[in-house]
Structures are given as structure tokens and as C-alpha cells.
Design a protein around this nucleic acid. Structure first.
Lengths: 121, 121
DNA sequence: ACAAGTATGCACCTTTTAGTAAGTACCATG
DNA sequence: CATGGTACTTACTAAAAGGTGCATACTTGT
């Protein structure tokens, strides 16, 4: 059994598919990356994730929040203070990402070269 | 040093970023998934990756090829016969993806639930 | 002779994703 | 009293990604 090349009619075909729904998004890897190190306030995070706009940062943070990956604490102060951090679920995701991060680190040059090749075609 | 929250001015910020350039694309996870099991002809692959269009399948295969992940063998026959398989580099990527796949498998239900929540907002 | 299978290519359109620029309400500092 | 910092929101626009459908050229099976 299960050597048949068939896909079940389900929301996700494989776990990878499911996982990529969570980390897919231009800035999400970086957000994960920085929050895995330590909790950060919104403004801090924005300075870490260089080049991200308010709109995208907020949007991605919201999505990661409903995905249960990120926890948001609003201290209800004025001026506002909001802390973002990874949930235990988020840390489990971060753990699962470690080998992929390493793979990317180790092969960054090759990947970059091919990225240019694609651009030129 | 390097406890500063700064990003180097480079093509990729972290390895995860780089890796996602390679596996990012609606059908790429599935292509990897099936090719990791065994080499397949184009038509076979298309039947595995249900719902994919010719255009997207070809496009993704080309990109994976220039990324060095997939090897393409054209037997120059008529009718055409073309075999796709993972390269050693591709297999190293597949290995790095194993934990993420598992994470996705284990949490598929949660992820799906939140996916619906996002849709409704 | 006609349909189906083989691996693609191409033109066009829609959907999704991302970016830009402005505004909000309040406070502290110069 | 204007400026800058706080954490956002909203409307509009641009770019990227994905989908549809038709065409190729040849062969095998009906």
C-alpha cells in the first residue's frame, strides 16, 4: 500500500505544503529569525527586518498570530508598547526550520548564482 | 559582537531566506516530494501532482533545473520521453526538508483551522 | 482516418502579493 | 509649538504568480 502515486483529497498534500502556508510570505522567515532570538517590540522588529514596510510587517505579524506562531502583548500604554514573541508552537516551527536554514546558509552562493540565471531568461 | 540586531547587506539575509527562493512556488514542494521517491517522466509527474497545469509544471521544473535541484534527461525519442529526477544537490535539499515536513504533518489540523480563520477576515 | 498520448510553447487574463504614501492619537523633547 | 517617536490603519497602485486554452509534430491504437 501507499506506494501508489496518489494524492489524498485533503487540504494539504504533504506536510511541507502545510508548513509553507505558515512561513510563506516575503518577510516571515526574517520575522521568525529575529523573534527566535528574543522577544521584541514592534519598532525594534521593524529596524531588524530592514526594508519592510509597516503595512507588510503588521500584516505578517497578524497572520503569524492567528497561526499561533507569534504571541502579541499589548501593554495598553500611551505611547503604545507592544511586545511580540514566539509561542511554544512557534519555537517548534523554528526548530523544524534549523536544517533548512543551514542548507540555505551552506548553499547560498550557488542559489544566488542560479537566481541571476533565472533573471536573465 | 554580532549580538547587534543588524542585517548584512547581502543577497539573502539568512539561510532560510535563500532556501525559500528554491522551494517557493505553488507546486514545488509536491514536485520535490514525488521526485524524492523516484525519477519520473513528465506525464507521470503531472498525474502525481494533481491539479497542476502544464504551464506551471514545466515552469517549475525549469526553475528547479537551473537551481541544480532537478536533472532532466531527454531521450530524443518520438514520441518524446523525458525523465526528471533529483540531483545529489536536490537530495540534500530534500533531507533538509524532512523535519519541516514532519512538523507540517503533525500540525496539519491546526494549520488548516487557522487558514480558515484568515480567509474569513 | 481519427483520437489519444507524448513534452512542450505561447498569448492572454485573473488573482495574489507587495509597495507607497498618507493619516491617527497621544506624549516627550527641544 | 513644532518635531519625532509610539503602533498601527487605510486607500491606491504596481508587480509577481498562477490559470486557461490553443498549437506543435509525431506515433500508436481503433
Amino acid at each position: 500500500m501507499s506506494d501508489r502515486t496518489e494524492i489524498p483529497a485533503q487540504p494539504f498534500i504533504c506536510g511541507l505544503d502545510a508548513a509553507l502556508r505558515v512561513i510563506g510570505g516575503k518577510w516571515k522567515p526574517l520575522i521568525l529569525f529575529f523573534l527566535a532570538k528574543e522577544p521584541r517590540r514592534y519598532g525594534e522588529l521593524k529596524r531588524c527586518v530592514r526594508g519592510v514596510s509597516d503595512k507588510m510587517l503588521i500584516q505578517h505579524l497578524k497572520e503569524l498570530e492567528v497561526d499561533g506562531v507569534v504571541l502579541r502583548t499589548d501593554y495598553q500604554e500611551i505611547p503604545p508598547r507592544v511586545l511580540y514573541e514566539l509561542s511554544p508552537f512557534g519555537f517548534s516551527l523554528a526548530d523544524a526550520l534549523v536544517p533548512l536554514c543551514r542548507w540555505g546558509d551552506e548553499n547560498a552562493e550557488i542559489i544566488e548564482k542560479n537566481l541571476n540565471a533565472k533573471r536573465d531568461s
